[in-house]
Amino acid sequence: MTDVHELRFSRQLYSGEAVDQAVKAFARFAAFDLEQTDDHWVVRMRPNDANLARRLRGELGNHALGLTVQRGGAK
């Protein structure tokens, strides 16, 4: 069982659809749990391989950011 890593995407800065799409793209590499707060899209990630956690976290964040930019921003 690997550790849970939490990523918090500000709703002011990230598109929720982009975060969803990024999570789907990385679904093969980790189990994900998604939650919304007033301010954030919260993604809890449990990587299949603990050694990949740091890389996965960074790549998922970059992918969500790239998809947000493609969509023209958060709104």
Binding site: S10, L13, G61
Partner: peptide, 8 residues
């Protein structure tokens, strides 16, 4: 420093 907000 690796926070999603810093990346953005």
């Amino acid at each position: 420093v690796g926070h999603e907000t810093v990346r953005a």
